[in-house]
Design a binder for these strands. Sequence first.
DNA 1: CCTCTTCTCGTCACCCCGACCCTAACCCGG
DNA 2: CCGGGTTAGGGTCGGGGTGACGAGAAGAGG
Lengths: 249, 249
Amino acid sequence: MTADRTESSQEAFLASYDPHAFPPFAVTVDVVLLTVREHELSVLLVERDTHPFRGRLALPGGFVQPDEDLESAAVRRLERETGVRRSTAHVEQLGAFGDPARDPRMRVVSVAYLVFAPDLPAPVPGARTRSVAWVPVGDVDPATLAFDHEQVLGAGVERARAKLEYTPLAAAFVGDTFTVADLRRVYEAVWGGALDPRNFHRKVTGTPGFLLPVGRPAPVGPEGGRPAALFRRGDATSLRPAMLRPGSA
Amino acid sequence: MTADRTESSQEAFLASYDPHAFPPFAVTVDVVLLTVREHELSVLLVERDTHPFRGRLALPGGFVQPDEDLESAAVRRLERETGVRRSTAHVEQLGAFGDPARDPRMRVVSVAYLVFAPDLPAPVPGARTRSVAWVPVGDVDPATLAFDHEQVLGAGVERARAKLEYTPLAAAFVGDTFTVADLRRVYEAVWGGALDPRNFHRKVTGTPGFLLPVGRPAPVGPEGGRPAALFRRGDATSLRPAMLRPGSA
DNA sequence: CCTCTTCTCGTCACCCCGACCCTAACCCGG
DNA sequence: CCGGGTTAGGGTCGGGGTGACGAGAAGAGG
């Protein structure tokens, strides 16, 4: 399963490459970076400054390098263009999007990655980046997005909603330590509806491996109320049985 | 969102293409075609007759054409190489596999598709095809598969097992009309364990939209027993709550 | 002190599920 | 004809998960 291709053989291949022998494809990665800001599920969008779709909003992304793994390419874009570190976020592949007409320049297949990140206090844009902004997914005008990014974003949001049902990944949206209410607000933002605080508390605390109680018993409440207990992420990877969203009977 | 690229501009692009401007990628599709044969979950494998991995077993697949949609490319391979018609099967994208070393010839990104098909009585191989065979997934020797197809197959099987839990897609593995026992044998083959016939019957018949009773009340039993009622697929797309596999608590 | 807030535990009814009994309906051999 | 094999499928019972909701705990502020 190891390749015998090397840098030099890659060069030889390039030199002898005939674009009519097989059609050249470009492969890109797009990143659907989601977070919860002010009780709203938001996505990071950048404004394009080059053809095509110049001036339109788009998901961060770019070409995959010749010897770069797909996920590495996505993580590189994530860290360079958004300032999010890989270790603090959850990254998973969303899927490949390859409609022949999705890019007017040439045939491009894009592999989309879905990232859950906590709402970082620092302004997220990294070094060499054009205009970048968090946009609540409900405020995104689908017609203004570049390429087929409306479809990619839609798939990412739906995947996120489904993943909260049967995984503990909601914890990827909050910081290192958090309260049950923090977690509940993530669910409410992603699913778009209120949840019963008592039943939610019973479910998440009753699921082994979801929450790890941290000794420190209490921070303060921003607007009154009894201080909540602090937790850390557990090592559970799935929720069985799942926590089903209410409106989807 | 409409492309201005045409056939002639594609030609112009090819003529002026410089392989050093951006690295050429090849894009392929691989098909994980699963069925249930003789109470065993099986995958369709072909024997490669060209370099690389000549003589090794591999998933059916091939290069995507310049103006071909990814799913169309997968369905084309499915129909040409396996004889399975798209209308009788379930097709979904499994994911993209793009390890730089997965193909020794050059950089190849493969988009894998997962297909559920009923066990057709006709010999499945199509017209121009090399040696092709159904192999029970438990009998596949992982080390003998070409490329990274062990990883692709593993992802497909795990996806199939999960999908049976929360979708009615098990019906894609059986024919047009089927009995509850047929469906149960699908679950047992995919999950690899026995299920209680009475509880299974209660669950599937009690889920609205899973099964449509067909008037014809009874076929015959192959080895005795009371004749079972016949059903057709319903229009439900998800199972809520899910049917969880026993061993996964 | 009272009142507001949020957190957290408890209760109750209901549903779903696993385990299990029993009858229905067919085939076959005696 | 009849008894014994098969599978199909309905019913019962208890336990666990969940929605709806009550109520106390623990803070801030008037």
